[in-house]
Nucleic acid binder design. Structure first.
Lengths: 148, 148
DNA sequence: CATGAATAGTTCACATTGTCAAATGTTCAG
DNA sequence: CTGAACATTTGACAATGTGAACTATTCATG
């Protein structure tokens, strides 16, 4: 359980702290934007995933790194409000394909566009700096799991 | 309710998406690191705040953007496990000052150091790129509220 | 000084998210 | 056909989060 890493790069440590702050800000903004549409953060994340197309529940659970039983409840609530539908996959009737309805997609797209992500933080950067940032983030994410 | 912003900068939009992915990864890693010490994410955040020193509950709630009544429960659980103490502020007896114990501080520091923040994402960058990233993040956060 | 408004914290009821373990149904290999 | 593997659901439970009602304390002002 003990971390016996090589000495920690102080720049990495500082970047970690900065990221923690940004994560906090981003998270808050995301929750607020979701709440403005009467969605919870978890519901918004699922809807965001479904913008790519219908998807088995298991796949949703894997992408969000949680137990499948958790997804059941979230999809229940989205379904009861008409944001998603559940249909048995004809190929494999164990699987249920969850699909966003028109209303669901609309809410998700709208939410995404309302998310200027901390418009202020990003506005502090010059256009060319934003490009730099984009490139760095892209590099960092090259190998990583995509998520909401 | 409609967002009638000026046209959205596509780079900003892409950075937002990249940030969303990073936030997901960071969040997962933070929760895991906390769980490895039998802490929840929320408890770990409170302990991290207390590394700066004792603090009224109200201040904790403000920093984490949640209701004070929520902090009561989190501090209850931390206190019952000996990670924090609650003492009345002699200056204003309405206020309770929450302070991390030795064990609490130790757990928090240890957690922070185990957080190489997506060691893999950051490792993908050359040292000078990490510096670039640090500077950009610093600029973005100059005016923003600090958080866990 | 006394009253009342404001403030800090707690308590309670409730919704959501999350875990885990035990069902149910379905598929697929032998 | 049988049994293992799999996808989803259900139920019990813990933690987080909100909002409203309550207690205690502080502070302003008459």
């Amino acid at each position: 359980m003990e971390t016996q890493q090589p000495p920690i790069d102080p720049v990495t440590l500082e970047v970690t702290d900065l990221m923690a702050s940004l994560v906090g800000i981003f998270h808050r903004e995301y929750e607020e934007a979701a709440a403005a549409r009467s969605l919870t953060g978890a519901q918004a994340k699922v809807l965001a995933l479904l913008r790519r197309g219908p998807m088995p529940m298991r796949h949703i659970a894997q992408t969000l790194s949680c137990e499948p039983s958790n997804i059941t409840g979230i999809v229940d609530r989205l379904e009861s409000r008409g944001f998603v539908t559940r249909e048995a996959d004809p190929q494999d009737r164990r699987v249920k394909l969850v699909a966003a309805t028109g209303a669901g997609t609309a809410a998700s797209v709208e939410l995404r566009e309302s998310l200027h992500f901390a418009r202020e933080p990003l506005a502090a950067l010059a256009p060319e700096e934003r490009l730099q940032l984009r490139d760095l983030l892209r590099r960092m994410l090259e190998g990583a799991t995509p998520s909401a």
